[in-house]
Simulated assay, not measured.
Amino acid sequence: MHDMPKDWLEAELQDTLDEDVEIELEDAVLSAEIKRIYRDNHPEQMDRKLYFHELLRLQTELIRLQDWVSYHKEKVVVIFEGRDSAGKGGAIKRITQRLNPRVARVVALPAPSDREKTQWYFQRYVPHLPAGGEIVLFDRSWYNRAGVERVMGFADEDQVEQFFQDVPDFERMLVRSGIRLVKYWFSITDEEQQMRFMMRIHDPLKQWKLSPMDLQARVKWEAYTKAKEDMLDRTNIPEAPWYIVPGNDKKRARLNCMSHLLSMIPYDDVPHEEVILPERLFNPDYERDVLPRDLYVPQKY
């Protein structure tokens, strides 16, 4: 009996590590040939043990940041932009993995509806902005207008120009309201994107990530490059600058982004009430009912 708490904690820790490994199964069903090509093009991959050590350390710091945001009713917005398959989703997943979803939430809006297309452009994003004590991570954001909408012809040049005129004032307004706004662009090379697209095509677990729009974006690589350069030039304002995350190495990109985000916010420890598990009340007359077996999930494993 003396060792039960220790054994239970060790089991819980192992479950946590297993969860990390499960998330890291990037090439679960990849063919041996695709694996070989990928590894040949990434010869200096980060040591796995070091990666997990740093990942857990940074996630611990993110919990401290979360507690500080919640305690002081701070408002944080983090924007993640970049080409398709640049690693935005993977970084967001690791940032939020151990955070309270009531404090940190992800916003990934679909294409605008017919009604939304008639609204002020920023209108559909405003309801998702944080209240005090919240962190909002935008997996793509209002910068869709400067990227996919511009390149794919969903917005004309007048609309794009109006966006560039409006977005600096819009973001300055957010910052004046007390929102801490951090903007990341995940950057990958042409060759890296091609390889990641090929991996998705050959991996049944990831084919859902490839949309017809992604494939068209691949064709228009150069147009996206010009649009990106224009966007960064015209929207890199002192109140909300852009930060570029080199993304060819996924693991380093995630850690570098997490570390930088932590450096952008002056969080510190906040008071915590001591947590004490209360004694359970026992009623000698209580008998637990036996529930019908058909209510239970079948025990297949």
Rank of each mutant, 00 (worst) to 15 (best):
R94Q: 12
V136P: 00
P101H: 06
M152Q: 14
I95K: 08
E74I: 10
E74P: 00
T118E: 13
E61C: 11
Q59M: 09
L56P: 00
E81L: 06
Q59Y: 11
R140F: 00
A111T: 14
D114I: 13
K88N: 09
N100V: 02
E116W: 12
K73H: 15
Y125K: 11
A104G: 05
V77E: 06
R94P: 07
P112N: 11
V69K: 02
A155T: 02
K75C: 02
V76Y: 06
G89R: 06
V103A: 01
D67S: 15
K75H: 10
R102G: 15
K93I: 06
T96V: 13
Y71T: 13
P127R: 14
G90H: 00
Q119L: 12
R105Y: 01
A146N: 03
E81N: 03
R145P: 06
I95R: 07
P110M: 05
R105F: 02
A131N: 14
L65C: 10
Q97D: 12
T118K: 14
Y143D: 01
R105L: 01
S85C: 15
L58E: 07
Y121F: 15
P112V: 09
I95E: 00
F122V: 13
A91N: 11
S85W: 02
P112S: 08
N144A: 13
W68C: 08
V77Q: 02
I79P: 00
D156Y: 09
W142D: 01
V151L: 05
V148M: 01
Y143C: 05
Y71Q: 04
T96G: 13
P112C: 04
P110N: 01
K75M: 15
L58P: 07
E134T: 02
V151P: 01
N144K: 11
R140W: 03
W68V: 10
D156F: 09
S85H: 07
R124L: 14
V78E: 07
Q59K: 10
L129F: 15
A111D: 14
L65D: 04
Q119A: 12
P101I: 01
Y71V: 03
L99I: 01
D84G: 08
Y143K: 01
Y143P: 04
R57L: 11
G132M: 12
S70N: 13
P101C: 05
G90Q: 07
W120V: 13
K93C: 04
Y71S: 10
Y121A: 00
Q59W: 12
E157F: 13
F154T: 00
A104P: 04
D67E: 15
G147E: 00
H72P: 02
K93D: 03
Y121M: 09
Q97S: 13
F154Y: 13
T60K: 15
Y125V: 11
L62K: 02
H128S: 15
L99E: 06
P130M: 10
Y71M: 00
W68A: 04
G90S: 09
N100I: 07
S113N: 04
D139S: 09
A108W: 09
Q59D: 12
